[in-house]
Design a protein around this nucleic acid. Structure first.
Lengths: 264, 264
DNA sequence: CCGGACTATTGATATAGATTAAGTTAAGAT
DNA sequence: ATCTTAACTTAATCTATATCAATAGTCCGG
């Protein structure tokens, strides 16, 4: 299997050279195709195989399970399910959330291609949140016991997985700071900039993208209400910093957005 | 060296059988003494050596550096210092914080005996925050490259360190939920309950303890102002749920505190 | 193509917690 | 000991964001 592009039908959403990532077909970078190996996956520079050599990647390949694609709303796992695997997003996007006692959900994270899901379950042996697809998406499942075994054999993999977890910890602590001291506008600007850099990591436009999540999801994630998120979006638009059209977003002035964030 | 109690002068702060942990001398459970091995440390059931056998603990011992005690305010490391080690708290307590552009600090974490500090630096190879002692404290420094090497040799240690990091991730996500949806009173109650269970983990009273941090530290950590923290404390006291006397705190009605938290 | 249900926007009002201000207590330093 | 500074408390006011409410737009199944 060589790294042939299997999408075929990616669609350019508007008269722009860089395609917006889109539901069902699109997303050239990481097709929903189930029969792709780590060696040929276009995400292998950012995902688990990073820093592994050919033969090591092959060994990793052996333990990765490539499930059928997930439809919007399908769950990877649910809160307190037994922890078995971590998951790498191949295409599409996911959200993690917990349900509070009064039934309200709070979103704890969003996951884009190349990112790892499920590490919150490692310690307690059960997942601390539920995770669902935000759109048609595909996943590589990596059974954790096998990942541990292989990490023991491949120091590079052990090193890299420590780094992935360390990165998650550092990222979570940034969000802690964000939530404990930023205003609604600062949080929203920071969120958009974060998405921007994550999309650019997977070679998508850092300035024009589709939000895979609802305003409500964003609000839950940022500790704001839907209405506030909506108001901030229109506010930023009036200031000419962004252009929003439902889920479609364009960052018109990244530096001004950065300036908002670094105010705090 | 056997596990003899080297403190000698631990002082019982009041006419109560369980001593409050206190600055300088006290804290029987984990003396400031520098010459104690992992094998004889009373924290070895909760700290890194957990799940290791005698000979494995001995190997861990070899790489652990037991620095001189830290005085209140001494720094373990500062933001953007090169990442070299993780640290296990032997006695006392520490806080991590980041400075925002306007000079204001935001506390990102508190660390009690048996807890591991510094994992935020693993991915980027530099620490994402500064960490300082809140009181006279002692530390075991574990050079990370050696920990990685040893983890490669000892699957138990690798497994356990994955678990420690996973635990940190799960904990950070709980705080995310706390900050994004809890009221000031809920946050404060949850914070006190958290301290309570962490103290009981190291065999200190879960209902009476000294707060090693200032109100301001607590406020920064919980995304509240000093004044609000102070008001909530007096409010909880008036309701008879706690008793506060400066840094000394007693939880009078744990269940009522739990009820406050689970309201959200 | 239509109907119902999510999803988003916008405005009016309420409120939790910030801010400002002032005073009190505690802890180090000389 | 006493002075000085930091830590804490309490009260009055203000404000950012939540809440409530109403409308419009969008998406999906039949």
């Amino acid at each position: 299997m060589s790294s042939v592009d299997t999408t075929g039908d990616s669609r350019t959403t508007q008269g722009d050279s860089i395609p917006l990532q889109a539901s069902v077909p699109a997303l050239k970078i990481c097709p929903h195709n189930v029969n792709i190996s780590c060696a040929s996956c276009r995400l292998n520079e950012l995902c688990l195989p990073i820093a592994l050599n050919k033969s090591e990647i092959h060994q990793l390949d052996e333990i990765v399970e490539r499930n059928r694609p997930y439809k919007k709303g399908d769950h990877l796992y649910r809160q307190s399910d037994e922890f078995k695997s971590v998951y790498a997003v191949r295409s599409g996007s996911f959200k993690s959330y917990v349900l509070s006692d009064n039934g309200q959900g709070r979103v704890t994270g969003f996951f884009l291609p190349g990112e790892i899901i499920g590490m919150d379950g490692i310690a307690s042996k059960q997942y601390a949140n539920s995770t669902a697809a935000l759109e048609h998406s595909s996943i590589c499942e990596i059974p954790f016991s096998q990942l541990e075994r292989l990490s023991h054999e491949l120091p590079n993999l052990q090193h890299h997985f420590f780094a992935i977890m360390g990165n998650e910890i550092a990222k979570d602590q940034q969000i802690h700071t964000l939530l404990s001291s930023y205003t609604a506008e600062e949080r929203t600007a920071s969120f958009l900039l974060g998405l921007s850099s994550r999309y650019s990591r997977v070679s998508l436009s850092p300035t024009r993208f589709l939000l895979p999540m609802t305003r409500s999801d964003i609000g839950e994630y940022l500790g704001l209400t839907v209405e506030t998120v909506s108001r901030i979006f229109t506010g930023l638009q009036k200031k000419g910093l962004i252009e929003v059209n439902n889920r479609e977003i364009e960052l018109l002035d990244i530096n001004a957005l950065r300036a908002i964030v670094s105010t705090s």
